[in-house]
Amino acid sequence: MKFWSQTAAILMKDLLTEYRTKDVLTSMLLFGLLVILMFNFAFEPDSEEIRKFGPGLLWMTFIFAGLLGMNRSFAAETENDTLEGLMLSPVKWSSIYLGKMLANLLFLLLAQAIILCLFSILFNYGIWPRIGWMAAITFLGTLGFASVGTLLAAVAANTRMSEVMLPVLMVPLVLPVILSVVLATAANFAQPPEEPVMFFWMQRLAAYDIIFVILPLMTFDYVLEK
């Protein structure tokens, strides 16, 4: 109970800060739009190609936009050393991790929802009949991505080039998640949808999520310690 109320306090703090500044969401959305724009000019895709490359492109956008957003989550705590302030309060350090991870998860999901809508409108990409499954897949994929990303953002915030360090550490480590989520998305949007394939990859995603949520919770204290 104590743990969760403290986690909620940290989560609300991050949400409130973001509500004031809107830094993270704005940068993620602008980045997403830029990728869509570039995709259009680089490939001038027809509807068949959109169907083929759409899932991969969407996730590339989600991932790079997400890296951009998650980098802020601990970089923002360095001004006035507020992270040490959190560490000094009588909270389990894992609740700092969890609060920030949930904040990142919410930001990412919100940005992804908007980017997905824009993508669907701009490329006439029919997502609506399959939107429920897409939401489930996106949640599973983003959970694994955000939980590893939050830990690695804390690692990267201590380095001299955190903007570079985060992607370099992150992309190889979450590759299983990326692979599964792209394949699940592709199966979901295939004509006709290939549900058994989709379920196969969603199960794998759920398994990775378990690993990738537990591992950071176990190691986060070591990252914070001074």
Binding site: V155, M161, L173, P176, L179, L215, T219, Y222, V223
Partner: peptide
Amino acid sequence: LVDSPEQRARLSAVVSIFGAVNALVVYMAN
């Protein structure tokens, strides 16, 4: 890229745990 030696040791230790677990997971995934 980490300046303090103590911090370098701790952070890279954590990353290596992820790396080792991941090598296995990537292999299965592939």
